[in-house]
Structures are given as C-alpha cells and as structure tokens.
Design a binder for these strands. Sequence first.
DNA 1: CGACACATGTAACACGTTACATGATTTG
DNA 2: CAAATCATGTAACGTGTTACATGTGTCG
Lengths: 194, 194
Amino acid sequence: MSVRQSLLAILDQGPCYGYQLRAEFDRRTGSVWPLNVGQIYNTLERLERDGLVDRGEADDQGHVYWRITAAGSAEAAAWLSSPVDREQPARDELAIKLALAATLPGADVAALVSAQRATALRRLGALPPTTTEPDADPAAIAAAIVVAAQRVAVEGELRWLEGIERMLTETRPSPLPLAAERPRRGRPAGSVRR
Amino acid sequence: MSVRQSLLAILDQGPCYGYQLRAEFDRRTGSVWPLNVGQIYNTLERLERDGLVDRGEADDQGHVYWRITAAGSAEAAAWLSSPVDREQPARDELAIKLALAATLPGADVAALVSAQRATALRRLGALPPTTTEPDADPAAIAAAIVVAAQRVAVEGELRWLEGIERMLTETRPSPLPLAAERPRRGRPAGSVRR
DNA sequence: CGACACATGTAACACGTTACATGATTTG
DNA sequence: CAAATCATGTAACGTGTTACATGTGTCG
C-alpha cells in the first residue's frame, strides 16, 4: 500500500500529473526506491476507481493533472497521522530462509549466514554518509531519514547474523524430520464432490 | 515469494498434504507468521502449474499428498543456497511515511515518530526472551533465529526513531512545495489517440 | 540524424490475502 | 448436542511489477 498512499499524500499538496508524481516521490524519499512510471498511471486509475482522485483534462501542455477528492484528502490525512502497524511483523524472507535452513537436511546454514554477512558488510560500506547540517532543506532531511533507516537495518542484520554464527558454533542444528502423522481426523477421502 | 519457496523447500523433504504443510511451516519458523490455509492450496496449485510439484492421489485417509518434481527440487536447492538479495532495499512503509511527512505541510512528523517509538518499545518488551540452550532442538534454534531477527529489527527501529527525534530538535523541516514546472518537453496534448 | 528524456497509457501477470463452502471427527 | 479442530478447496480481489506501444522535443 505504500505507493498508493504515497501518491495520495503528494496529491494532497496539489494537482500533479503522472510523470511529476514520480519526480516528487523521488525527491521526497531520497531517490532510494525506484518507481516504475507505469505503476503511477496504474495506481492513479485505481485511486480514481475508488473515488479518491479525479482525472483532470489535459492542459495546453498536454499534462493530465490529477486532483485529490475530499475522500482522498481524508484518507491521506489518516494515513499520514496513523502509526504503521508493526504488531505482527511482515514476513522476512531472509529470516524465513535461515530458519528453514536450520531445520532442513540439504541446507548449509553456516555458509548462508556467512554469505549474507558479506553482502551486508558491503551494503553498509556503500551507504552514503549521514550529513545532517542544521540548515538542511526538507528533501535532505527526508533523505537522511531514509538512509538512517537503511543503516540501522543493515547494522541490525549484521549483529543478528553474527549472533547466529555464534549460536551455530555452540549448537549445530540437526535436520528436523517431517512430523509423524497423527491419527486422522476430519473429512475422509473423496467426501467432497462438486 | 516467501510462501511459495518455503512450501517448496519443505516438500523437498518428502511428500506432504496441504494442512500438514502449514504445521511444518509453523514449526520451522517459530509460529511467528500465521499462514492462512487457503493460501497453501492456492500456492500448491500454482506450483503444480509451474511443474514444480505433482498432486498425488488421496490416500486411504483422504490426505492429498503433494510430491516435489526434479525441477522443484532444483529450485528449492537453489533458493536455500542463494543469499537473499537486499541490494536494493524493499520499500519500507514506515520510512516512506516519515520521509514524506517531513516534506508535507499537513503532517506532524514529531508526533508520528513519538507514537511509533511507543509501539516499538512495547513490541520490544513483548518479545520472548532468547534462550539458547546448547542442546536445543532444531525447531527451537529456528525459533531463536526468527526472534533474534525481530529483536534487532525493533532495536534498530528504536535507535532510528531516536535519531530522528534528535535531528528534529536541531532542524525542523519546512514543507517542500511541489516542484516548479519546467518548460514542457515531450508529447503535446492529445497527440495520442487509440 | 540519433539518442535520450519526457510523457501517457495498456495489458498481463505474480504473489499474497481473505471470505466462503463443505464436511468429518473429536471433545466438552 | 454444540463447538472446535482437521481438512480441502474455490473465487475474488489487491497491490506491485514489468513489458510494451506510442510519440514529442531537445541536445550533441
């Protein structure tokens, strides 16, 4: 829902045309996440379908400006003022993979951890330095926020992976067999026909 | 792709039926991410469509066992042995929201940060303690890996949010207006008909 | 002239998610 | 008996993502 809500939030500032929306999103998020232009138009149509934006006529320059509706404005405000729900954490592919690898016979967890640690280290080094000058313009502040998020994420990943490595030296996990079948309950064979 | 690959990796251990797959996924990932049963069957059909698994006949108990194919086995092995690509980081809704909030007039970044910090603190306290006994069974190790991932994520989020709070006391971002229009290039109005 | 950025759009697909239907069996 | 669990499936939808088509204006 990030793209959808982001476009809505930007449109709440004033009418924009599709291509412009991408530029605004880029400027305001430090150009970290590339956004395919096609997705913009796609999303705009869905927002229109939901009554959150209106498609304007093309102006003399050929720009199709989209305007936010009252409902859209309300939703944008609600989104911007509500905390992101992290209560039940999103599926983390890396954590899933490592957890599964620790329980499956074919996998080499240690190698996986070590490989992942190498890439994490590289990513950490590739992050731009955080320059928070007190007179930074808002776009720079936004960029700093995003970069900081990436930094803590990578650092956390590193500490996490190191912790796993330590743990694996103490305890080497043995593969976990498929659970033994318990006596069957529920629908017997072929009882559902359509 | 996590669900899809996870099921494939488990099936690489041996044939399973749908309901069983959910239990195995649960056991092997610390029961952290609830998995709707419907999605299992859904995903299995898609895997079959792609030639990665075969649907078996129902046995005398009515269990429909799914078997992995050679192609599926290869893909499972490839997935389990390849590092997760974190090169271009996934979109982080919270980071996007805060970055946007820092550039939009209507939003109260400080309030948002503070609210998010409170929930992060609560989540940190709600995390189960990490008990890594040296003789832990593989499922416990897997669970520990997942919990540790959550812990570093929350801790990182906290440090990040505190950093933003500090930054905001030094520099209060002013809203960033929509970019001024540059002289038009490209397709003029109405030049595309269908 | 050719390459590239600007600009709008369409079509298809992937995965994930949920709601619903159906029914047997166990347990309180 | 009622409720919960086991079990299989269907149908529909949502967002995200990409490939493609089309065309103009600018710059080297």
